[in-house]
Write a protein that binds this DNA or RNA. Structure first.
Lengths: 248, 248
DNA sequence: TCAAATGTTTGATCTAGGTTAAACTTTGAT
DNA sequence: ATCAAAGTTTAACCTAGATCAAACATTTGA
């Protein structure tokens, strides 16, 4: 009566995210080898901790659906959000170094994760060149992303930070296909403020200003970008997703 | 008449940094396999660019001696220093993702580097488990370090940032052996300010204040920490390198 | 369905640290 | 050895955004 533990869940080979996730560079047969080590569990409800600080590092997690936030805690107990994570992205890599997690990750909305046991992954890494290379690319990308973040935190003012943040999410939501003008903002103002190094009142004020100027509209957690060009100007990014002939 | 290109340079097996660098987990014979792909060039003079933005990514670099700074440039042309690097540390990993460097790295003082061709390294990564695992650890560590940085940039005030910065360098200089109370600060005030997201005048003022309070002394580029405990209190870090019984 | 908890907005005030300016010091090239 | 360039210090002033405060909105769960 024992079925494979992931028998009634989607497989990498049929997953719509396979072109953006760990299997990106793999052949059909290698995707199956990766698939065989992945554990897919039931839907995690909102607010579930994927891992906590001090937990033994055993898996990395690919997001199949949902939204995560990762954060660490300072010596003085302050929370610092280190990232928000969308489908196709990987979390947990910070645990590799010491063998224990040095931060938390939790779901912001109900989410499906693919848990990948790191020991088995390491074994495949020695055998499947494309898998190893893709994992190195993902980690390299995270380093690059952190450098961009540093630039934002150190050099941008509050308006630029908010604009950059909104654009970044809208680009990431669209999975390489330009930019979505409608997306969900599942995190609180407090979370956004913490991530961007601002006070929550400042975040609220600036989002309010953008709404008043009709650059964006917000309906509950749903954001619509009405004037992409103005938002990218504010962000201080020559956003190559924007058609230069479109003037609104 | 052709000698191996690195014949008259030190090898990993006799390098004092081998316990902190890429060879950390390797057996004697595997160290030699790594050694055989490493290129060691002549001393790079101060101000030499190791790589520039847009350069094809071909090597990663281990620092044998000296001091590097890495930085990227925003769309609007602003420089953002993303890190300072000491002997035993690796630079260039940000290039893996796209195959091109997305930032600069340059020497702050005359430096010896070990250049590791990435294609050959990847080949060894498939064969030498300890090498691959160590490289993943190094990248994971860089991610963790960036999270700590984010916490510092977002939540610490100017005094705390400077104190944290000085302590961090003093710890890294000592290569896992606690903390050095005397070390060189080869970067300019402008560099420190840029890295910490402060104005250079603020950096100057705060360092001046620390000197006046005799927490540190500065002689040209040489820093001496006189009161480690006060500095760690300022940093807001329960610094476990400090003997709690030592009260100065 | 209602109340408590959680999250958001808005306004008034305050301050850390940015900006401007200018003198001073060190470094490095000739 | 000299001097221009680069780096540093110090002081006066100013502002972006933090903090404080209080009303308002939404979510949750009993």
């Amino acid at each position: 009566m024992s079925l494979p533990h992931n028998s009634n869940f989607i497989k990498c080979s049929t997953c719509s995210l396979k072109g953006f996730c760990l299997p990106m560079m793999l052949s059909h047969s290698d995707i199956d080898r990766l698939d065989n080590i992945i554990q897919r569990n039931k839907l995690l409800e909102k607010g579930t901790k994927v891992y906590s600080i001090g937990d033994k590092f055993t898996h990395i997690y690919a997001i199949r659906s949902g939204y995560l936030k990762s954060y660490s805690i300072s010596d003085s107990g302050e929370e610092q959000i280190t990232g928000f994570h969308l489908p196709g992205e990987i979390v947990g890599l910070e645990g590799i170094n010491t063998g224990s997690h040095v931060g938390f990750s939790e779901t912001l909305v109900p989410s499906h994760l693919c848990a990948i046991p790191y020991d088995k992954l390491d074994n495949l890494n020695s055998k499947i060149d494309g898998l190893r290379q893709q994992l190195f690319k993902i980690m390299s990308q995270e380093i690059t992303h952190n450098h961009e973040l540093m630039l934002m935190l150190n050099q941008k003012n509050a308006d630029e930070k908010i604009a950059t943040f909104l654009l970044s999410l809208s680009v990431r939501e669209s999975l390489g296909k330009g930019l979505t003008t409608q997306f969900v903002l599942p995190m609180t103002r407090t979370d956004i403020a913490n991530y961007l190094g601002l006070a929550l009142e400042t975040v609220s004020r600036i989002i309010g200003k953008l709404i008043k100027q009709d650059v964006i509209s917000v309906d509950h957690r749903q954001v619509t970008i009405n004037k992409v060009n103005i938002l990218s100007e504010l962000a201080g990014t020559s956003c190559h997703f924007v058609d230069p002939n479109q003037h609104n």
